[in-house]
């Protein structure tokens, strides 16, 4: 599904990603772990196409399409979803309105007519009950005055509404208490199927107790220095990152 080869990217001419290789297939969950500043968030932004990041080398393909030729919205409509670490506020725009705009943008890209209000509402209700979201929530303005947990849940709600092929969860666990974490993780698990894939970016092993990864990658100084199965996450939790760094040097 997603294939990344020798990806090198800069932010304001500072190299951040220094040769990433990663292959994600349908049905898989990959966890990317690493200390602060290792390039985790940069990787997710580069896949999503944020323009502040300059790709200087390497290839990213999504279902065979070269991502470098697609604008961020085209990548989104192709099925790439990024759950933001810091979701932004959009004052005056309700969650429902935003999701409608987003769903219709995707439908338009597929040559479909806009969804009817009743159909959309039905789908929203369905996903809201799946994620344990209360009715009044969708008429609140996008992320305005939301708690950390509400913001993250809003991200997962949008993900549920858009059913992406590839979801990238960027530090979705940060700022969440254990209950919120469980709710968010349950949501992600419920949405999982054999046709979609998930990349979980996280500092801590904690989230991976709820979302069980097939693969764990350690990102350090812009490179994936070690890959393994879920036991690697446990090992990291126990020993920290230093031992791998020493190992690989």
């Amino acid at each position: 599904m997603l294939k990344i080869e020798n990806l090198n990217a800069n932010v304001e001419s500072t190299p951040i990603l220094k040769g990433i290789d990663l292959t994600v297939n349908a049905g898989e969950i990959h966890a990317i772990m690493g200390p602060n500043g290792s390039g985790k968030s940069t990787l997710s932004s580069v896949i999503a196409g944020k323009e502040d990041y300059e790709v200087i080398d390497g290839l990213m393909t999504f279902e065979g399409k070269d991502l470098s030729e697609l604008d961020p919205e085209e990548r989104a409509n192709a099925g790439i979803f990024l759950s933001f670490q810091y979701p932004v506020e959009i004052p005056g725009i309700s969650v429902a309105n935003f999701i409608k705009t987003s769903v219709n943008a995707k439908r338009k890209s597929l040559g479909k007519d806009p969804v009817s209000a009743s159909e959309l509402l039905k789908l929203m209700r369905e996903k809201m009950s799946l994620l344990g979201i209360k009715e009044g929530y969708i008429s609140r303005n996008m992320n305005e005055g939301f708690s950390g947990g509400e913001k993250k849940r809003n991200e997962i709600f949008q993900m549920a509404m858009l059913s992406p092929k590839l979801a990238i969860l960027d530090e979705t666990d940060s700022g969440l208490d254990i209950d919120a974490l469980r709710i968010v993780a349950n949501g992600v698990n419920k949405l999982r199927n054999k046709d979609n894939a998930t990349i979980v970016i996280t500092h801590y092993q904690r989230l991976l107790e709820y979302i069980i990864p097939d693969y764990v990658h350690v990102l350090y100084d812009g490179k994936i220095i070690k890959s393994g199965d879920k036991s690697l996450a446990l090992e990291l939790e126990e020993k920290g990152y230093d031992w791998i760094v020493k190992d690989t040097k």
Binding site: G49, E73, G92, T101, S102, A105, K106
Partner: peptide, 22 residues
Amino acid sequence: FYCNQRGIGTEEAIALIVNGYC
């Protein structure tokens, strides 16, 4: 970028943000 990432093109995103603002 947030709107773009949700599939909403820049022009439409501006309209959305402006409408929210107003």
